[in-house]
Design a protein around this nucleic acid. Structure first.
Lengths: 328, 328
DNA sequence: TTGAAAGCGCTAACAG
DNA sequence: CTGTTAGCGCTTTCAA
């Protein structure tokens, strides 16, 4: 047996006699032989590895995305290497250091970064395909949800319940992650309000920093207003959790005194009876990974329809934190 | 310039003239040259990659551990590939297929698996070092917390408050993950009770499956007893969250009517005012990764003291869900 | 259908 | 201090 024949046999290439192949596979499994991946990668020039970069590995949302990505990677026989880049600089380094990733990963999934065409081009010239997760920002593949629609759904729901003074808990920080997301959701929300002929008091905004504690602080400041809102829309469930707590501490009944609406359908949202606009981040991860793998692996080329923008569904989940506006 | 010189210069090896090195680095950065990692790996026989296997990528606990691991990996210049193996079979495959991992990773961090010496030996012979996270189970390195002490702390706290009928929400499933953990915590808890001269009613146990929903169900069944407990100890915060909700739904006041105690100090525990035995899973990940890297990388050999068992601290965080026993 | 041989791009002796 | 020369273990023409 020559190495060439063994190589062909083990990889299932044609032009190998049945008997030879059988023999080779038998011996291989007997010896527990497995082709050295590094040698293979060096020879083929492809690493069968994809990278996934997230701002924060420990967060609920990102963990879900990564879980989705991982599932399709292992299924497709790809290794998944994860990296977190929490600061804008770290991300900048990553983009500048595209050559560093060269040959280490066939493709990259960038989660919730404000990637520019230039960044992506840098990766491409380094031979790295990239698909991003989040808001669409350039001429490259992005999978995500319709964040403006999220804001719209939230507004519609609250409007139907008769609310007109609606607080907004969001975030003004745009770096390093989910950069466009808060603004998109907020503008969808404001547009819906405007379309309904409600003019929205811009003071009804508070920064919740996409954290539980931030949400609580934001709610507290909203409640401290001379003319507080009858409902508040938090741009994430975690902020809504905090907001809920703050409202309860202030002695308010939800939804009797004030309605509360979140985004995500976090695993604990049901427990809080939180009405929310649900998304499925792990499905986002799955789709992103499929797109990427279709682009870098000819074997999976026709498994999925390659597109530049993929929008996953969101839906309103009505639970117990929203109700009709109370009479003032 | 010969390739050898370039190689030496770029890797910071000795025996390179200052001027030569300067020139080479200059040209390299000018050309954005980076050594091909696959070629390096093939030549050196080390992948500078470590693998991390978890039962579930999306869970809070595991996400924290992975985050810790990732932080030290990138700092040490190692790639981190993650894989989830949720079922016992998938894990078995992994152990049997140790040869598959061969040369792909220098080391492996197995999170909360019931690894046997045999499993570990299989990895070792494949040239893969492994450190596990969780309960100590064999002659290999394990980093974790003292789960029996966790149970003990919980029991002490509740005993001091005067409780004697204490419910336990845990889990009887031992596969595939955290296999020994529930039993260790439970036995630490029972021992403390026994030492205090309290004989514990074995019926005061309910399976909460380490999930929010399970915790709620478990609490409900505990509450349905003819002689319900005055306090309950949930083996995880997520189960405690569910338990709390169930108690509230039953119209009970916490801690007035019933005390509740969890384990983890989940990011939302503070929000729930949950008294809990805190651990720091990301610190566990950090330590595990350091141990592993010290074992596979001579450069980092003396950065950390290599041990076989590493126990990280836990502490009781008293918040609002535990209080003195109410008079019956 | 199979084998021989030339790389893939690096590292590591060994000479010089 | 620097260059030469073998590999590392595969894949891939090209012949046989």
């Amino acid at each position: 047996m020559s190495v060439a024949t063994v190589s062909r046999a083990l990889r299932g290439l044609p032009n190998v006699a049945m008997s030879t192949r059988a023999h080779i596979t038998a011996v291989a499994s007997d010896l527990q032989y497995v082709a050295d991946p590094m040698a293979t990668r060096l020879a083929t020039g492809r690493s069968r590895t994809i990278g996934c970069v997230v701002p924060l590995l420990g967060g609920w949302y990102f963990a879900q995305v990564v879980a989705g990505v991982e599932a399709v990677c292992t299924e497709a026989g790809f290794d998944l290497v994860v990296q977190s880049a929490g600061s804008a600089e770290r991300l900048g380094d990553l983009a500048d250091d595209a050559p560093t990733l060269q040959r280490r990963v066939d493709g990259l999934i960038m989660v919730d970064y404000a990637l520019t065409d230039t960044n992506v081009a840098a990766f491409r010239t380094a031979g790295i395909e990239v698909v991003s997760v989040g808001a669409a920002t350039g001429g490259f593949c992005t999978v995500g949800i319709d964040d403006a629609a999220v804001g719209d759904m939230a507004a519609q729901h609250l409007i139907e319940l008769g609310h007109t003074r609606i607080g907004l808990i969001g975030s003004m920080r745009t770096e390093p992650f989910r950069f466009a997301v808060p603004e998109l959701r907020a503008s969808g929300f404001r547009t819906a309000l405007a379309d309904a002929g409600i003019d929205h008091d811009p003071h009804l905004f508070a920064d919740g920093n996409f954290s539980v504690g931030g949400g609580a602080g934001a709610m507290t400041s909203l409640l401290a207003m001379s003319n507080p809102p009858t409902a508040v829309f938090a741009l994430s469930d975690e902020m809504a959790f905090g907001a809920r707590r703050a409202a309860e501490r202030a002695g308010l009944d939800i939804p009797g005194d004030i309605s509360l609406l979140g985004v995500d359908d976090h695993e604990l949202a049901a427990l809080f009876e939180l009405t929310t606009v649900a998304q499925d981040p792990s499905a986002v991860g799955v789709s992103a990974a499929r797109q990427l793998i279709a682009r870098v692996d000819s074997e999976h080329n026709d498994d999925v329809h390659v597109v530049d923008r993929m929008v996953l569904p969101t839906r309103l989940v009505e639970r117990g934190t929203t109700g009709p506006v109370h009479s003032a």
